[in-house]
Simulated scan of single mutants.
Amino acid sequence: MVPDGRVLDLGTALGEPTLTTLELLERWDEQLSILHSLVADPAGDWRPLAGLMVHAPLEPRQIFQSGANYRQHVIDLGVAQRAPDDRRTVEEARAEIAAIMDKRAAEDLPYVFIGLPASISGPYDDVVLPAWAEKPDWELELAAVISRPAYQVTVEQALDHVAGYTIANDLTDRATVFRRDMPPIGTDWLRSKNAPGFTPLGPWIVPAGSVADPSDLQVTLKLNGKTMQNESTKDMIFGVARIVSYISQTARLLPGDLVLTGSPAGNGIHRGRLLRDGDVMDGSITGLGAQRTRCVAQEAAAVGAPDDPIAVK
């Protein structure tokens, strides 16, 4: 628990020294009021956050990732990735793709794929860029954290299963998104998104009740101090409730699962500037804190996954 730059060891405060974030989420409904009372207690064993190492706020059981979910982002990607023989002007291409996005919002379904928990790293950890990744890109996203199991829930019920929200940077190697050897297979999310540390997470999980409106938050990413992404979640084609409900029609969502809601416009592939050794990414979302990660080429880093990338707070 981290209010006002102070931290409280929840395991000690709750009398359960080995308590994990997952266990807390499994009992979220009964524990939330206790957490609020702990925040209000000035006599608690509070310690300054300064000087402590901040890890990812949880180790998710499952990661569900929504793609192509920001209207402007999809339009930008569609224009940037036009075929060489596409005779449309930029304006014509944007207009056609915009019309498709509007029709999709009214009639279609969210697009969701699955990520791996091993891609999670802390909000201030270095990001190792694999030697094989030719076009690593940033994708800052709002992530929902599941507390109650959810299976075939309605849109109206969906947010009752969300404990809170956090920040995720869903890094992607654009060069491996599509299979070059077998184009009919389509996308290769395993290779393009799941390298160790490719999903910096956190710093905190903010309870849903403390987030006024998840559909009206500003998502901002700066690269070496220059703003690249600065978009509201209002631009989402499908909101959090719609995505959670859609996932639950097929899969059973479990406490501790992450639902990434897609990335807004301003990615490197659109700007013609991909990640490279030494880059520093600063990401923030309204009310959820901020993360800072430095990119390190694999040749300059120790080979292998970071030691102990996840710890319970």
Rank of each mutant, 00 (worst) to 15 (best):
L258W: 01
A13V: 02
R27A: 09
L129A: 00
K103D: 15
E91T: 09
Y111W: 15
A297G: 09
V206W: 01
A105E: 04
D213G: 09
V7G: 10
E141V: 11
G5K: 09
T12I: 10
A131R: 14
N169C: 06
P200I: 02
D170I: 02
D85K: 15
R174V: 07
L10T: 04
G11Y: 08
A300M: 04
A99I: 03
D76K: 03
A98R: 09
I120E: 08
L129T: 00
H161A: 02
L52V: 14
T286H: 02
A195H: 03
V127K: 04
E139Y: 00
A105N: 13
I243A: 01
Q62F: 13
I205M: 02
E30T: 12
E92W: 07
I146C: 08
V219L: 06
P136M: 02
D29F: 01
E134W: 00
P264H: 00
T166C: 12
Q65F: 14
Y70F: 10
S147W: 03
P255E: 05
L24N: 02
N224S: 13
R180F: 09
G239Q: 05
L58M: 08
G272P: 02
A83P: 11
A311C: 07
F238T: 02
G115M: 01
R174C: 06
L109R: 11
M53N: 15
T166G: 08
V219D: 01
A98M: 09
M1A: 15
R292G: 06
K103N: 13
R27C: 08
D188R: 09
L140A: 10
S245I: 07
S263V: 10
D188N: 14
I120M: 06
R104T: 14
V54T: 09
A208C: 00
D188A: 12
D76L: 07
V240I: 03
I146G: 05
M101E: 05
A68N: 13
A163Q: 01
S37N: 12
A305F: 08
S121Q: 07
V74A: 06
A168K: 08
W204A: 07
R191A: 13
N230T: 12
A302E: 15
L190N: 08
S192P: 12
G164F: 03
R104F: 01
R294A: 13
A56K: 10
G51V: 10
H161Q: 04
S33P: 12
L253N: 03
E107C: 10
L10K: 00
N194I: 08
Q62A: 15
G268T: 06
V244A: 09
P57E: 04
N230S: 14
D45E: 08
V259M: 02
M228K: 11
E91G: 11
W46T: 02
L159W: 09
N194R: 03
